[in-house]
Amino acid sequence: MNYRLLATPFFRRSGPCPRSSAGNSRTQSAPTKLGRAVFFALAALPGFQAVAAQTQHRDPDTGAVNWETHAHGVTLSLTQILPDQARAFYLNRGFPPRAAERYATACVYMTVLRNDAAPGELSFRLADWTVQSEGQARPPKSVDEWAAQWRALGLAEAARIAFRWAQFPPEQEYAVGEWNQGMLTTGLPPGGRFDLIARWTVAGKPYEGKLENVVCAR
């Protein structure tokens, strides 16, 4: 197990873990603030494309890659959760090694969907999203599908509860300013490539955002 990968995310930015995680509620990087300000300024201009360019960056310490796009006032972001990170998280939640390994190698992402400025409250179901890879299209692997596996393996209730609430919500509604952050799996093998199409509705009108050429962590 690569302990550097486990430790660095929590110490890299601002020192000891509790301060970096809990004490930074006011920290938002200047580039992020500037980027959002520019985005919203442009969005106010007539003719501005509702779908902005996809961005990608790699964490210099862990190597984890993030893909992000803005579409119709909504931010969609996927950040690789490296197998060592996922393994450590679930082993600490009481998963047996076999179960932790199964999840850790299922192409896991920390996923954020955020209603920044959609024309109203959005709603979505993960079952409506599409993972396109090598000519095949299917939804992300569902929480129910995982839960059935954990029940079959006899995982303790506490472990199953932690799993459920650590996942990106299977369905949700976001007013402007609302968002979630959670784990999402595609079920693709390490190194696999795919496009993700996220779909949502606002007042019954369908919208979508797409992330292209996303890569599963190895």
């Binding site: 660095t8 929590f10 964490d59 310490d61 931010t75 950040t79 490296l82 920390m110």
Partner: peptide, 8 residues
């Protein structure tokens, strides 16, 4: 995991 990514 993944908490070190740019925080929303």
């Amino acid at each position: 995991p993944g908490a070190a990514a740019d925080l929303p």
